[in-house]
Nucleic acid binder design. Structure first.
Length: 556
RNA sequence: UGGGGCGUCGCCAAGCGGUAAGGCAUCGGAUUUUGAUUCCGACAUACCCAGGUUCGAAUCCUGGCGCCCCAGCCA
């Protein structure tokens, strides 16, 4: 990450850590990003990644990448790999500090034994159903399990048998012995271990009992001497439980700090739903450019720096927040406006013939790659008698504020000449098919000598030189600001979230656009070369984001 | 009617007793061979409400109201 881009806006966590350091409560800062490898990372995770890695960097500490892989039924190596790729891409490096909850299974098992011996944990043999009934409700206390008072010896034996695979799934569970009447339901003898005869992606069949997240997470942090354990608000109720385990075990105590998770308008953020979108094929995969996943955004053409900028801009707080999509899009534009090479591309071609331009002549016009950054160099644009312009840039009967082409009107061709529309060829339905224009040869790199003003500038390509391309125009995946406000979020899916244009013509210099390279197609938006181009042997561009368009806004 | 949180401009968000930062959005206007960028300017007598303390409160106290989370052998 570029250090010059860290504006470090104030937030309560940064303040709190600074205080801990200042008053000597902590001597160093260790944070961690702890994903479960059961899906791909999304923009909400980016908020947590930027926070954890950012804070560690700011305070000269370190940030671990730790996989919370305690549920083998949902986790896969594919997700581990994808998550590592995404964290790296976002710009963060965990160095040597890559950890897995599964590496701590033996330690966690010993911790469990310690609590059983202290008579702070017991094996419960109720069914899941009975356990639920006996847990009580939000307003009524729970009732003790009939197995709650088993002897330490019996608990030790049963737990041992659980571990050895003597019992089927669901027959027993190890529970913490805390308080069945606690107003905080998390403290009503929570499960610590369950029997799961499932193959784990890293430990294989070594274990058939697996620790619950609640019995694992806090101890994992403790083992890694995480000083500030940053998580989302829903775990606040669990904090007393984590503190209880740490205290009873007598081990290093991290401090948990909760913040509000990110909600982004017009999208969903739950991994369950994202997985469903993939499996039900509402999108083409986890990296579909419409997905709020990091891999999707990457493929869409969002720069990692834009996402980091976004995470900084939205701040960190404790109130449930919904961020408008425009904030993200603005970050993307800000980044790309600076870095993206400019190019000319026509989505819906309308032929233009420059009648006064020699048919055998071709001029190679030098055009800047970035008008505000001459240091980025230039490229050559072929100018010839036959061109294509955007169909939208011509109107038979244009209103006066339409600064583009119409019968008898003049317009500047970007980087080239001013032309005037003299005649129009039409099809049987009366639609313009070819515009016959004349070129003012004195206007290359110059304004008309007679002082007349030509307000509009439009993009164009040479008909003979331009390359055909597919362009995928992406729009928001959902048409509701909050998809969950629908009975089923799938009902809020935007049927027009993808429009594929097969008629596009792009300037020849784009022939070797490498997948992932993002350009500004002038006047249209930012477009990123898609990796499918390689397999389909055809140029394919994904629209990353449009340019701001005050004209469209004015049109309504 | 249990427990835990949260309430400052349309959306985020600073502020932590001394008289409302910033960003996005919106609306004006200037420059412009991208109706882009850039640049200027406007945008909360007001901080959920009602009382109270104080010379002074968004900041402290009391009482309301509203919203979010928790009853997985998920994380």
């Amino acid at each position: 990450m570029n250090p010059s881009e860290t504006p470090a806006s104030a937030n309560f966590i940064r303040t709190l850590i600074a205080e801990d350091l200042a008053n000597g409560r902590r001597q160093n800062v260790v944070t961690r990003f702890p994903p479960e490898p059961n899906g791909y990372l999304h923009i909400g995770h980016a908020k947590s990644i930027c926070l954890n890695f950012g804070l560690a960097a700011e305070f000269g500490g370190r940030c671990h990448l730790r996989f919370d892989d305690t549920n083998p039924t949902k986790e896969e190596q594919e997700y581990v790999d994808a998550i590592k790729t995404d964290v790296n891409w976002l710009g963060f490096d965990w160095g040597e500090h890559l950890y897995f909850a599964s590496d701590y299974f033996e330690t966690l098992y010993q911790y469990a034994l310690q609590l059983i011996r202290a008579n702070k944990a017991y094996v419960d043999s109720q069914s899941a159903d009975e356990m639920r009934k006996n847990r009580g409700t939000l307003t009524e206390p729970g009732t003790a399990s009939p197995f709650r008072n088993r002897s330490v010896e019996e608990n030790l034996t049963l737990f041992e048998q659980m571990k050895n695979g003597d019992f089927p799934d669901g027959s027993h569970v190890l529970r913490a012995k805390i308080d069945m009447a606690a107003p905080n339901i998390t403290l009503r003898d929570p499960a610590m271990y369950r029997i799961l005869h499932a193959k784990h992606h890293r430990t294989g069949d070594s274990w058939c009992i697996y620790p619950m997240y609640d019995f694992a997470h806090g101890q994992e942090d403790s083992i890694e001497t995480v000083t500030h354990s940053i998580c989302t608000l829903e775990f606040e109720d669990h904090r007393p439980l984590y503190d209880w385990f740490i205290r009873e075990l007598g081990i290093f105590a991290p401090q948990q700090i909760e913040f509000a998770r990110l909600n982004l308008s017009y999208t969903v953020m739950s991994k369950r739903k994202l997985l469903q979108l993939v499996t039900e094929q509402h999108v083409t995969g986890w990296d579909d450019p419409r997905m709020p996943t990091l891999s999707g955004m990457r493929r869409r053409g969002y720069p990692a720096a834009a996402i980091r900028r976004f995470c900084d801009r939205i701040g960190v707080g404790r109130s449930a927040s919904w961020i408008e999509l425009s904030v993200l899009e603005d970050c993307v534009r800000e980044e790309l406006n600076d870095s993206a090479p400019r190019a000319l591309a026509v989505l819906q071609p309308l032929k233009v013939v420059i009648d006064n331009y020699p048919a055998d002549r071709i001029e190679w016009i030098e055009a800047p790659i970035h008008p505000q950054k001459p240091e980025m160099g230039t490229r050559k644009l072929p100018f010839a008698r036959e061109l294509y312009i955007e169909a939208d840039d011509y109107m038979d009967e244009p209103p006066k504020k339409f600064f583009r082409l119409g019968p008898g009107r003049e317009v500047r061709l970007r980087n080239a000449y001013i032309i005037r529309c003299d005649n129009v060829e039409r099809d049987a339905a009366g639609n313009a098919t070819v515009l016959h224009c004349s070129c003012d040869f004195d206007t290359l790199g110059a304004n008309p000598a007679d002082g007349r003003k030509v307000k509009g500038t439009i993009h164009w390509v040479s008909a003979a030189h331009a390359l055909p391309a597919d362009v995928r125009l992406y729009d928001r995946l959902f048409s509701l600001e909050n998809p969950d406000s629908a009975d089923d979020y799938r009902q809020a899916l935007n049927p027009d979230s993808l429009q594929t244009i097969t008629t596009a013509r792009v300037e020849a210099s784009l022939a070797d656009a490498t997948p992932g390279a993002t350009y500004q197609f002038e006047r249209l938006g930012y477009f990123s070369a898609d990796r499918d181009a390689t397999s389909e042997n055809r140029l394919i561009f994904n629209r990353t984001v449009t340019l701001r368009d005050s004209w469209a806004k004015e049109q309504g």
